[in-house]
């Protein structure tokens, strides 16, 4: 084996594949990577070749193959799928089809693409074909699937509200007023989770790091809040707002003292 084919050390110390092994991995998974690009194109009513998703998917596949570390025990497809999806999506967003969609006659489609792209950032598991199930669920029951869909609908509504409000049109604020009123009634920590994720664009992991808490605490709180919002929006009855789970109670207590953390309450005041 020559020096070029020698096992290289990745920055974190684990061994990666040789160039030959990486190339074989690319050949083996090329069809699979292309199917990811086609799925993204299909969802967004685009052409996977002419809109450049094919090239982006292949580049991501090659990148992942070169950096893949078998010793970590993660299967290659599990490691690469999300990255290939991200690359395909980014290529789609740079394409002329995407730009035309925002300005063209079918604005709803263009806006829906933008909205769904942001939704993929909030729920990255969608890129791997998984729904945001409750933490203790495997997704085998219809109830789990419906629960996950509800989270997505509420999440998408938030993103739409934020995009609408950013246009500063009073009508846009009024369209989402009921939802914002419900959110403004939540505990400060819940409001802040929603603000950071949907308004500031942070991942749930980023929020957890900022609050120096376990990521699962934030994920669970986020899901519990979305589940409540769905139920509240689906009925005219006033439901009891969700209590803060033990994982974030300490942070909740600190935030209660800081009135500025009731961010949606302030937002509503500014726009109504």
């Amino acid at each position: 084996m020559n020096r070029e084919d020698a096992v290289k050390e990745a920055p974190d110390g684990g061994p990666t594949l040789s160039i030959e092994e990486a190339n074989n991995l690319v050949i083996e998974h090329q069809g699979w990577a292309e199917s990811i690009a086609r799925s993204v194109a299909r969802a967004w009513n685009m052409d996977w070749r002419s809109d450049g998703l094919d090239g982006a998917a292949m580049e991501a596949l090659i990148f992942c193959a070169r950096r893949f570390q078998p010793a970590r025990g993660v299967p290659f497809r599990g490691y690469a799928r999300r990255r290939i999806h991200e690359a395909s999506a980014e290529a789609a967003k740079r394409s002329k089809t995407w730009q035309r969609g925002l300005a063209g006659s079918d604005k709803i489609e263009g806006q829906a693409r933008e909205l769904s792209a942001e939704l993929l950032n909030v729920f990255p598991e969608l890129r791997s074909g998984q729904l945001p199930y409750p933490d203790d669920s495997s997704g085998d029951s219809e109830g789990d699937v419906r629960g996950a869909i509800r989270s997505l609908l509420v999440g998408a509504s938030f993103i739409a509200a934020k995009q609408g409000i950013s246009t500063s049109l009073p009508d846009e604020v009024m369209d989402y007023k009921r939802m914002l009123i419900v959110v403004a009634s939540l505990e400060a920590v819940h409001q802040l989770v929603l603000w950071k994720v949907y308004w500031e664009g942070l991942s749930l992991r980023n929020v957890a790091v900022e609050w120096e808490t376990d990521e699962l605490n934030v994920i669970r709180e986020h899901k519990a809040v979305l589940a409540f919002l769905f139920k509240q929006l689906a009925t005219r009855k006033q439901l009891n707002k969700p209590k803060v789970r033990p994982g974030l109670r300490e942070i909740a207590m600190k935030l209660r003292k800081d009135k500025r953390s009731a961010v949606f309450t302030e937002l509503l005041k500014d726009h109504t």
């Binding site: 799925s39 299909r42 969802a43 829906a112 939704l119 729920f123 998984q130 997505l152 998408a156 739409a160």
Partner: peptide, 14 residues
């Protein structure tokens, strides 16, 4: 808009 966006996001991973 919201419904279509959710469908697109889910569909892109299938």
């Amino acid at each position: 808009l919201v419904q279509t966006a959710v469908k697109m996001a889910v569909d892109s991973g299938l």
